[in-house]
Write a protein that binds this DNA or RNA. Structure first.
Lengths: 332, 332
DNA sequence: ATGAAAGCGCTAACAT
DNA sequence: ATGTTAGCGCTTTCAT
């Protein structure tokens, strides 16, 4: 009796026990009115055959567990675990499950990943950092909720407030006496260059527009930012404050400053963005514009719920905006 | 014409277009032999009705995308994103998807979570840190692969080598002159107290068994470990080396030592376990027994594949053992 | 307490 | 190029 490659079905179990397969159905669903002895024999057969009910066949005839597909660039980027945690928690409250897909190793294939995920999930929550035409041009009717993304289409989305936050952060730097400011901007990320725009506008409004050489663009990682910070300081030795696109880049700045023997915040203040837990572990601790990432994930799930209730529903633009909060650490 | 709450089916589309529903099937599956004009009209109706093919009905009649359920305590613990990344990458290579569930907020319910996940996935990879009877006593026939777990049952599992690693780490501490050793042990985690056991045995073998007061048990988090490290140092001021259950606890030790004005590694060396990326960001960088967590995830997926090939397959005990590697940082 | 029959939404032969 | 038929594995009436 060789092991059948095909998984056992409910009928296989029924045949083995010698009952009709509805009886088996009753047993595995714990319905009443089954002879205890019959039940025992069915359960035994289930074990022997390694029978597991097909969730697909089941879903066809009963209300199904909803599945949310979550797409992020890279789960190892410490920003995302917290977001993921928020999505999972919120989904779990509703009895939904979450499948995660990453695009990091496949940039330029975000649209492809999105479509594949859409096929396996009831709705998708996506954080895309390469605003590609492929995504921008997508059918607007998909059950898609974007996170922190400036899509032109009427997608449901949750956004992170940038303008007020950056102004508050820069004002804080200035108030602490960091008035010769440079910026480390990220080369990818959802709101690409928006943070830089506000930074520049604000300083310009104050009558001191930043020279182009005071802004460096780099991959938003610690390593790339460290190198970029060195460049920045090479070209602008007078700097006494750095605004970084995110906390990873801010940490890179910290590394570069330490390597140069400069004290933070005495010689140079550093301001990050994101408020990663990580920022509290480095020395000095990071001052940052803190995003409640768990909440961000929860808000996205809320949007999904609205989409389920009414597939045609589209949130008002900017209806779901999460404002970062300045958390002052030791780096300013 | 009110919006039907029930999602549109292939038949709804067919009716609207005035063709048989198999024609619709052809269109949405991009089969040949469809009149372009018919195709156009079908696609239009698909848009109007927001029709999305049921993945369950599809899965019933075609080879299905496999789903792996991954259970971890807490995605925010930096150990897990790397593990998750390994699982996702490995699964993606095979065209499988991964759903993630966390138990952290529901300790004591690991068995419950496991069963729920099992119902929604084709196989489960689980990291359980509360070796409960409920899990220990589980039906041994489940398609379950445990990670770093000492289950008595014949589950497929991947393990982390402890003995050789701890010996190597402690030998390193001693070689660096850290010969008055204490340990911060974790109160949870898969191989609970195994690391402590090897630590104690080794020192005992060297003729210097550690006094009980030189070992503190705490929740394996930075905060709890910081407090525990203070206790440890209060009671053992002569210590010049600390072996921590994991990197988070090692970082806690670093915090406590700094708060006490002690220099690491001059006054006291610190050895961690896990080799988190995080350990390279703290000052000094952490010496740690590095686990290739990405690989760990990949190995688990390999086991799942074996389970799919032969549901009765159970790996040889210890057949899948991943040996940590000592990575020397600045903390020793 | 158990069986028979219908049908969930879809794809895959097999017609025409 | 399109329609007909069968059947995937299961739950649910409805009988018996």
């Amino acid at each position: 009796m060789a092991t059948t490659p095909r998984p056992a079905t409910i009928k296989d179990v029924a045949k083995l026990v010698g009952v009709s397969y509805q009886t088996v159905s009753r047993v595995i669903n714990d319905k009443p009115d089954v002879d205890p002895e019959t039940k025992r024999r069915v359960l035994e057969a289930v074990g022997v055959l390694r029978y597991r009910p097909s969730r697909h066949a089941r879903a066809l005839v009963r209300p199904d567990v909803k599945t949310i597909g979550l797409i992020v660039p890279d789960v190892r980027n410490p920003f995302f675990p917290e977001l993921i945690d928020g999505v999972i928690d919120s989904a779990a409250e509703r009895g939904w499950q979450v499948t995660i897909t990453t695009t990091g190793k496949r940039p330029g294939r975000e649209a492809e990943v999105l479509h594949a995920t859409l096929r396996q999930a009831d709705a998708v929550i996506g954080y895309f950092d390469h605003t590609e035409d492929a995504i921008r041009d997508l059918d607007t009717d998909m059950p898609l909720v974007t996170v922190d993304h400036e899509l032109s289409g009427p997608f449901g989305g949750v956004r992170i407030g940038v303008d007020r936050a950056v102004r508050e952060g820069v004002a804080h730097l200035l108030a602490r006496g960091h008035d010769e400011l440079g910026m480390l901007d990220g080369s990818s990320g959802c709101d690409r260059h928006r943070r830089r725009q506000v930074f520049t506008d604000m300083l310009t409004g104050l009558g001191r527009p930043p020279a182009a050489r005071r802004i460096r663009v780099a991959d938003p990682s610690i390593e790339a930012a460290t190198a970029a910070a060195h460049d920045l300081l090479d070209d602008n030795p007078e700097l006494n404050g750095i605004f970084a696109f995110n906390d990873l880049m801010a940490i890179g700045a910290l590394h570069a400053l330490r390597a140069r023997g400069l004290d933070v915040p005495r010689n140079c203040g550093v301001l990050g963005f994101d408020g990663l837990a990580l920022g509290q572990l480095v020395t000095p601790t990071l001052t940052s514009l803190h995003i409640d990432k768990h909440r961000l994930g929860a808000l996205a799930v809320d949007q999904v719920e609205r989409l389920f209730a009414d597939p045609a529903a589209r949130p008002e633009p900017g209806s779901t905006l999460l404002e970062p909060e300045l958390v002052v650490g030791g780096s300013t």
